[in-house]
Design a protein around this nucleic acid. Structure first.
Length: 583
DNA sequence: TCTATATCACCC
DNA sequence: AAACGGGTGATATAGA
């Protein structure tokens, strides 16, 4: 046995074969495992697998499980009712961590990793019986483990493996969506979309043929006496910033802004909805350079335009809550830079106003209500600094002169000098060591041509991801149903009477996760909840949702029919599966 | 005609 | 040369 593994009673290589239709829970087909010490092999296939009540290998703290898709293995455990492994290492995740930020293998999957390490890969791509393929995979993974084990940071690899348990649980839970509206949308989206456009446009000719009609838009702007930002060539600036700013200044612009996403790419058929009406998408953990999850945007209701979240509705007797860290990245920067002024700003509860006060732009007795504009400017400044914004873009974003934007940024530098020294150090360290890493060892290789703004942002984003992963672990391990993580937030679900407790527990665990990642500095959280039969709502998507709902209501069956279709004996889910695109 | 790249939407 | 980080994805355009 390899020395670093000597205190494990057993080390098992485990692989699974499974199928997962879009939106459905994963379905196990086969499990193969090999005892790394003794060479004993266990092979379970379909019907036998389903009759076995416990895994054919140890799962306690003395047993180490090694795999290349921990999520799949754990999902199989969940589907089979097996207890979950307490110590699991995912070699694909560890490989990704070892090369992250540098060039990727030419080939994806296990094959690419084997080739990268100069190990034979032909056996895992060869055709043959299912059992033969499983054996070839198992042998290849054993080789790979022998090659990688010396370089593994086992403690941190186990933390990432623990997160995979949370991922499998969350993916199995999914987000409840209200199916009648979804079925109506999926059934006739092009027509409904046109009706929604018509409702929002209301005869003004701003939209035509499903897209913004420039002539009609200009006419409407003239009528409204709205002066729209113009690009150097004289054409209207239809970029994101211009829309956002104009929507803020002119409420009538907002519905048009919200409509743009709907027109350009939303398609209800693409949402991955299971027959039980839950939105399940692979979270794709560690898919981004910073270690964030990266679920498919089109398959998830959380990845679509904000109005789509109005489909999220808890089932009867249940309730949902979203809990997010307040100003997470600002808080991380304050903690890691150990900037006392920045930490005081965070702790004050309103970092942006606190910054304005520190610079002298607002008096000590100012409030968000009394100084909304000053607060907005310092908010944009503080958020922009996290991404390394320059004065030109800040000026454009806020409609200020470049001089004024410089003054804002200079105020940030004077208010938080320790943060700026730390940020300089982050960039210097990354370029010197050609590497960055989060507090628990999510690494990124750095080239000398790296974008300095990316280097300076990495600690905030990567440690934010670390914090979210730890929270996912602790909240799911506390027995709370987590529907989805969302970068700085968790969506949880519980029976209505239990929700308050679940929210309180989640908030406590998220606060503790922030302390663990940030060395004692606590981040606040905020919660928003909704109970059945109410639907989730998002102010950003309100206008388009209202139009969608108006169109849908004309198409809903009359109430006496609706009662029938809602009864358990006649599940609407059958309808839904008809419209769902097969994988 | 197909693929690579760029642009512009959205999310955090 | 660009000057706001990390992504997904649809669509348009350029080039083989």
């Amino acid at each position: 046995m390899i020395p670093s593994l000597s205190h494990y009673a057993s080390v098992w290589i485990v692989i699974c074969k499974s199928v997962a239709r879009s939106g459905e829970r994963l379905c196990p087909l086969a499990v193969s495992a090999k005892d790394f010490g003794t060479g004993q092999v266990v092979e379970l296939g379909v019907p036998k697998l389903l009759g076995i009540k416990r895994p054919p290998y140890a799962t306690g703290p003395q047993a180490l499980l090694v795999t290349v898709d921990a999520n799949e293995v754990i999902a199989c455990h969940l589907a089979l009712g097996w207890r979950l492994p307490e110590r699991i290492v995912d070699l694909m995740v560890e490989f990704r961590n070892s090369i992250n930020g540098g060039p990727l293998p030419m080939v994806g999957g296990l094959t690419g990793v084997l080739l990268w390490h100069g190990l034979p890969a032909s056996a895992v791509v060869c055709t043959g019986s299912s059992l033969h393929q499983m054996r070839a995979r198992l042998a290849a993974i054993e080789n790979l483990f022998e090659r990688m084990v010396g370089t593994l940071d086992l403690g941190r690899a186990l933390l990432r493996g623990r997160y995979m348990c949370a991922v499998a649980r969350i993916e199995a839970t999914g987000i409840p969506v209200e199916q009648q509206s979804l079925v109506l949308l999926a059934n006739d989206w092009p027509a409904i979309r046109n009706c929604v456009i018509g409702t929002v446009d209301d005869g003004r000719g701003v939209f035509r043929n499903g897209r913004l009609n420039l002539g009609g838009f200009k006419t409407w702007l003239d009528q409204q006496r709205i002066v729209w930002p113009v690009l150097p060539l004289g054409t209207l600036d239809l970029g994101d910033d211009a829309w956002r700013e104009m929507a803020r200044l002119h409420p009538d612009v907002r519905p048009f802004k919200e409509l743009r996403a709907t027109l350009s790419w939303f398609d209800p058929i693409s949402l991955a909805i299971g027959r039980d009406g839950r939105n399940r998408t692979p979270l794709r953990p560690f898919a981004s350079i910073t270690g964030r999850n990266q679920p498919s945007a089109k398959a998830s209701v959380l990845g679509s335009a904000a109005w789509v979240r109005h489909l999220v509705t808890p089932q009867n007797g249940r309730a949902l809550a979203v809990i997010d860290w307040d100003q997470q990245e600002f808080g991380i920067a304050a903690a890691l830079s150990v900037d006392p002024a920045m930490q005081r700003s965070y702790t004050s509860g309103d970092p942006y106003l606190a910054l304005a006060k520190t610079t002298g732009a607002a008096r000590a007795d100012a409030t968000a209500a009394s100084h909304p504009n000053v607060r907005d400017q310092y908010k944009a400044c503080a958020l922009g600094v996290q991404y390394g914004i320059g004065h030109t873009r800040l000026a454009r974003q806020l409609g200020l002169s470049e001089i004024d934007a410089r003054t804002l940024l200079e105020g940030h530098r004077r208010a938080f000098p320790r943060f700026w020294r730390w940020s300089d150090g982050v960039e210097t360290y990354a370029l010197l060591h050609r590497e960055q890493q989060s507090v628990f060892g999510w690494r990124r290789k750095v080239g000398l041509d790296a974008n300095p703004r990316s280097l300076r942002n990495f600690p905030m984003q990567a440690n934010g991801a670390e914090m979210l992963r730890l929270a996912c672990c602790r909240v799911t391990e506390a027995g709370i149903s987590v529907c989805a993580p969302n970068h700085d937030a968790l969506m949880i679900e519980a029976p209505v009477r239990d929700l308050a407790d679940a929210v309180a527990t989640t908030q406590r665990l998220m606060a503790e996760a922030s302390e663990i990642v940030l060395g004692g500095f606590t981040l606040r959280t905020s919660a928003k909840a909704v109970a059945a039969p109410e639907r989730w709502s998002d102010p950003r998507g309100q206008a388009v949702w209202s139009a969608v709902e108006t169109v849908l209501n004309e198409r809903r069956p009359p109430v006496h029919q609706r009662d029938r279709t809602c009864s358990p004996a006649d599940p609407r889910t059958i309808l839904l599966s008809v419209y769902r695109r097969d994988t």
